[in-house]
Amino acid sequence: MARSPVVSARALSKRFGDFVAVDAIDFDIWPGEVFGFLGPNGAGKSSTMRMIGCMSPPTSGELRVRGLDPATDGPEIRAHLGVVPQDDALDDQLTVFDNLRVYARYFDIPRREARARAAELLSFAQLEGRGDDRVDQLSGGMRRRLTIARALISRPELVIMDEPSTGLDPQARHLVWERLHRLKREGVTQIVTTHYMDEAEQLCDRLVVMDHGRIVASGSPRELIRAHVSREVVEIRVEDGDYRSLIEELAPLAERTEQLADRLCCYVADGDALVAALSKIDPRDLHPLVRRASLEDVFLALTGRTLVD
């Protein structure tokens, strides 16, 4: 049986008055994969998510979710969708358990079944024993795990998440990613937006890079890096901020150089070789940093800007 995409978009656009948030993008998302929308704030990721989640009508173009059209079958699509919004939208005055119970009722899940699922999801979110705590007593990471758990109350096959680990401390982020890895093992299709390159690299099987409403690149994280940047990057910082002489001397040795606000990035296949050459050219003790290229570098190469302003 031929596989069909869970979500597919052709020339999808969203306009608010004169402002074009999403500009004629195409993509397909296949069952079971973790698909990412990577881009800086304002790139159009959230608007795209809202359209997939049937909470915002497309201005033009075609969008299909599980074969259905959001314009006509919104409620039906949402009945089988899990949504993790950026700001949680949990009810602070209610307990953890009540939040799950009420949400289950929106999906018309019978009471006993709802209670069973809520207990199951509490342990998924690693919040056992906190069912009767009020939500405003939870930490940011716990709230996010609760929101993810809540999104799963209807046992959806598709979960969409808007910036799942934004605002969390590193430990909380890793806990969230670990839960999402578990979801993936269970075969749930996930769509994630993020402006963190490490999140995109950690979670996504495939992703698209968005900027100003357009898709500027797509593929798996490895494919994107291989296609658009060199293998390694050498970062150099000088105190006086004057990189001109360095650029002149290093340019012939590197595939590309990119000057940022606070450093110079040299894209090479072999970072150590460049560092060795640098020490011969420039007598200063510059302590250059050698690292592997990342999705941040891909974005920089494609747009000339960084993901995080």
Binding site: P75, A79, H80, D91, Q93, L94, D98, R101, V102, R105, Y106, F107, D108, I109, P110, E113, L152, S154, R155, P156, E157, E186, G187, V188
Partner: peptide, 29 residues
């Protein structure tokens, strides 16, 4: 996660009453 995500009901409860339920739970607090 099974493919059958929602239990089948003979007659779905009206959508608006589900919203009312949510507000009543809030009101209890």
């Amino acid at each position: 996660m099974s493919a059958l995500s929602l239990p089948r009901r003979d007659r779905a409860t009206p959508l608006w009453s589900r919203a009312l339920f949510g507000l009543l739970v809030q009101y209890r607090r």
